[in-house]
């Protein structure tokens, strides 16, 4: 089943760590957000292959925005 990874809060995309097509395990970092003066890694919970990665470094994401899809 596809896992949709969404932003939990308003944040800047500080670093994009993974790329589309990468295999990730549960707990793997996909991007690192910056918010509240914190660097917050966004991880996959289920693991799989990243089929979509829709953010770039410097983007601003709102709560609920799609970051990536892992299948």
């Amino acid at each position: 089943m596809a896992e949709e990874i969404r932003a939990e809060m308003v944040a800047n995309v500080w670093k994009v760590v993974a790329r589309e097509g990468d295999s990730v395990t549960d707990g793997s970092e996909i991007v690192i957000l910056e918010s509240m003066k914190m660097e917050i890694p966004v991880v996959s919970e289920d693991g799989g292959v990243i089929t979509k990665l829709v953010v770039n470094e410097g983007d601003v994401v709102q709560e609920g925005d799609l970051i990536a899809v892992v299948e």
């Binding site: 939990e8 809060m9 918010s35 509240m36 914190m38 917050i40 890694p41 991880v43």
Partner: peptide, 8 residues
């Protein structure tokens, strides 16, 4: 838990 919403 800082890992989620920075722990806010």
């Amino acid at each position: 838990n800082p890992m989620r919403k920075g722990g806010c």
